[in-house]
Amino acid sequence: MTLMNFIYGFLAVLGAFVFQTSLTGINRKVTARLQKRRGPKWYQQFIDIFKAFSKSSITHGWVYDFGAIMALGGIAATVIFIPVAGMQAFPGLDNIFVISYVLAVGMLGMAMSAAGSGNPWASIGVSRALTNMLAYDIPFMVVVFTLIYQHNTGSVSELASIQQGVGILGWNFFKLPLGGIVSVIALFGMLGKKPFDSFIAPAEIASGPMVEYGGKQLGMMFTLHELMTFIEVSLILNLFFGGGETLLIYMVKYAILYTFTNIVSGVMPRFKIDQAVTFFYKVPLGLAFIQGLLVIYLGWGY
């Protein structure tokens, strides 16, 4: 650990933020086009976030602020762990469980902050978000276990580099198609894209956890969302689509994957939270198990 590591880490966070926020802006345009609109400027998302930062804000007590800082801090730290095209600020810290659990710090912080506002809708939103997490994470974890068993490593960068060099068929998505499909479905859940976005239902529970945020805390939450998206998409990208040999390839793949989820979610309705759970435990979990059994007991995928 030298100072350079930390500078790289900071740059990684910054880069991830700029890249993902631009992509979000572009995707807002994509969505608009889907709906036959013109849509906002490609940098609209930056404007929105900076505007939120520029406004005055309120606080409901120290935990409201502390939670927000903890959330964004945790997520920022997670971004530092993510290997991008083989690059890492801190080599050796990219164990998949570390990443997915450090991610949880951010989520817990956000949940804490939201519930700390004293607004019951925030708590309802958090309760749905956590339920949603329980729904999508289990199938995804089953696939992850399968991957670790198969490749005997839990390091994300190693898992990504194993897939590289043999073209598109080297990707886990094609080697383990069922697992790939499961993880892409799980990605929808992770990103809170439709049909799994009931926890921020704006009209029903007034945007759930976000209900009390305004001003800088809202800006932080938006930033958090961008970074979280980056982490989650990167994770799936690294695990199933071979990561990226170079930064450019990585970014292109990333953009395609993210835009894909966005387009699909653009034409989706919304699951109730219990429907989401039932869905995830019926279809993706089943597929994940089939994949796991095929790999572990029948040796498929070697």
Binding site: S57, T59, D65, I69, G73, A76, A77, G215, K216
Partner: peptide
């Protein structure tokens, strides 16, 4: 480190009203 970064960001931005 991440926490510190965000703490700085939070401190730089205007103070919130209780």
């Amino acid at each position: 480190f991440g926490f510190l970064l965000i703490l700085i960001l939070f401190m730089v931005l205007p103070k919130s009203r209780r």
